[in-house]
Amino acid sequence: MELKGAGEQVEKRYRRAERHKWEVEISVRRRGDPAVGTTMTDLSRTGFRLRTYQILKPEMELWIKLPGLEALKARVCWVRDFEAGCAFEDPLYEPVFHHLVRSAQSSR
């Protein structure tokens, strides 16, 4: 889902890295909970957006599992309805990020 209007401009201004549309099923685990499936809708080296029915709150720690990678630690930055924006604890290594983006583009 793309954001539209003035809010999109404000959101882009505060991003640390360019985001790519990347709709893929991943697993997400909150501290002390089992992993659940959810949809990642965009990805950057520093973060991502989720579409989820899981209850998330800003500053909550998560562990996500991307295809072909070990679990990565992230923090919830914002929550709006059934979407959440999250930041990786450590940015993705640039070649890994580009590989993920290329893989997603070739699977469309």
Rank of each mutant, 00 (worst) to 15 (best):
L3I: 11
G5R: 05
G7L: 15
V10Y: 10
V10H: 12
K12P: 01
K12M: 06
R15E: 10
E18M: 12
W22D: 10
E23L: 08
S27E: 15
S27F: 01
R30W: 02
R30V: 12
R31P: 03
G32K: 05
P34M: 08
P34L: 12
A35N: 07
T39E: 13
D42P: 08
S44A: 10
S44H: 02
T46P: 01
R49S: 08
R49H: 08
R49F: 01
R51A: 12
Y53S: 13
Q54H: 03
L56N: 05
L56Q: 04
L56W: 03
K57A: 13
M60N: 09
E61D: 08
I64P: 00
I64K: 00
L66V: 07
L66I: 06
L69D: 04
E70Y: 02
L72A: 05
L72P: 00
L72S: 01
K73C: 00
R75P: 00
R75L: 03
V76F: 07
V76P: 11
F82G: 02
F82E: 13
G85A: 10
A87D: 15
A87K: 06
F88L: 13
F88G: 06
F88S: 05
E89S: 08
E89Q: 12
E89Y: 00
Y93M: 05
P95C: 11
P95F: 09
V96D: 06
S103M: 13
A104I: 00
S107T: 08
